[in-house]
Computed example of a mutant assay.
Amino acid sequence: MFARTTTIQGNPDSVDAGIAHVRDVVLPAVTAMEGCIGMSLLVDRESGRAIATTAWESEAAMASSAQQVLPLRDGAQEIMGASTSEVDMWELAVAHRDHAAPEGACARITWLSGYPDAERVIDVYRMTVLPHIQELAGFCSATMMLNRETGRAVGTAVFENRQQLEASREDSRRIRERSAPEMGAMIDDVAEMELAVAHLHVPEMA
């Protein structure tokens, strides 16, 4: 499985319009493309940052959709008041869902880089990180994606609501600070965002 993320730094006042556009226009168009297995949208209402993720059955399916999604990306940028977006390609390495995310769900995203061994990152996430975060109150699901060429990885944990996400901060900090050295990776960034669109139908890969 593979995934494409598109990060848009938009206007906070345009977040609701952006969510509606992705839900009503982008989601139906993308999920109708061959090989697409779903889409999600994370948003930060305070900063205007939005991250759209599409999942694909194969790297070839993801690559073949690149030109088709360009006008959809341009439209989302315009509605959200942004002139550019950042696009990243990932291998979807680990996915586990305890239960579907309800309305109001939120996610913590952790970006890593600099690891020497991709398989080590996957093993540590699967055997060390996932067993701990799935015990946290309100846990819904988790994914870990990486790019072997750039040496970057990103882990996402979804919780039922904002309160549970915030309550898990300290435990999550301890988990990542313990696991990053095991991976040989550096923690680049951590963000907490609202899961505004949750249609990423990725099969269990834990």
Rank of each mutant, 00 (worst) to 15 (best):
Q9C: 03
V30Q: 02
E149N: 09
V202W: 01
S83E: 15
R176P: 06
S64Q: 14
T150D: 01
Q77L: 13
A63F: 02
S113I: 09
I51V: 15
L195T: 06
L146S: 03
S83A: 12
I133V: 15
E57N: 14
L42A: 03
L165T: 15
A107S: 14
R173T: 15
R152E: 01
S14N: 15
R45L: 01
M89T: 14
Q164W: 04
V190W: 00
I79E: 02
Q77G: 05
V129L: 09
E78A: 14
A142L: 02
D123S: 15
R178H: 07
G38P: 11
E91C: 09
V22D: 00
I109M: 11
G138Y: 01
S168E: 05
G104L: 09
M193T: 12
A107N: 08
I51W: 09
F2P: 10
R49N: 11
I8S: 05
A29D: 05
P181N: 08
G10N: 08
A196L: 00
E91S: 14
M62I: 10
T128M: 06
L195D: 02
L136P: 11
D24P: 06
P116S: 11
Q77K: 14
L136S: 11
S179D: 12
E192Y: 12
M145K: 12
G10E: 13
T54V: 13
M62N: 12
T128P: 04
G184E: 08
M193I: 12
V26C: 00
V87A: 00
M1D: 00
R45Q: 03
M80I: 01
W111E: 06
L112A: 09
A55E: 06
V94T: 09
E135S: 10
P102Q: 14
D13N: 08
M183C: 07
E194Y: 05
R178A: 12
I19E: 05
A206C: 07
M1R: 08
D13Q: 11
A29M: 00
G10F: 01
R97I: 07
I109P: 03
